[in-house]
Amino acid sequence: MSDDEASKRPGVLATVFAPAKGLLEEVGTLADLAFHAVLWGARPPYRVSLVVTQMEFVGVQSIFLVGLVGLFTGMVFAVQTVYGFRRFGAENMVGGVVALTLSREMAPVLTAIMVAARAGSGMAAELGNMRSSEQIDALETMAVNPVQYLVVPRILAGIVMVPVLALVFFLIGIGGSWAIGVWGMSLDPGIFADRIKTMLVPADLTQGLIKALVFGFTVTLIACRHGYYASGGAVGVGQATTRAVVWSVVAVFLIDYVITSMLTTV
């Protein structure tokens, strides 16, 4: 190996700390984009029609998928809980336990993952394509701030629609668990409903909705970040889309733990 090649090789410390440096850069870029989104979101013009279009994309177009996943999640949960609780004769608790799990965890987390997979990937691909075909540069040269025009409506749509979708997930999930528990596993419908009423308190739903709101912001921000700063043509757009989904899912679980720790008193 020549001296020149050896001098270009990264040092041991640089290699060891490269992932940490990459993570810090990623967080920095996300914070910068979030800051600009807040700044430009507060400034007129307020592009209501673009927000409505994105709400339709994030929310309305995801309802069927989210509802379907919610239905099967509720059904699976009912089967597993009845199976487990029957061992010590506590199957009457199934309605309440399923409602608690769905409202506090499953509905916001799985909804956010569904939105990341469907809408987040779409956003990253669309913005990445706009970046590589110079459409984002074109917006800038026409005195239109691209963050205000492209990023703000998507983030607002995420903040509004992910909680709505989580609520849909929760309601359909409860319906699915009731159908399996009552019709399939002969649980008493009155007790099932009563346990939901007594065990589920407004704070459970609030925690779920707060999580969904934060996830909506995070997932759309990460999707926009990867699309907006995509480079490298078609390959780059593909990688940006993959990274958007992977990082969104990781961020959802990480933030879920943080919020749960903050809002749950054991």
């Binding site: 394509n129 075909s133 074109a138 026409m142 701030n145």
Partner: peptide, 22 residues
């Protein structure tokens, strides 16, 4: 950013890849 947006109203650019909004 705001001053730049104002200044850009006096510019126009024709892009190599057309940059038409899809």
């Amino acid at each position: 950013d705001v001053q730049l947006a104002k200044a850009r109203r006096r510019f126009g650019m024709v892009f190599q890849k057309y940059a038409l909004f899809d």
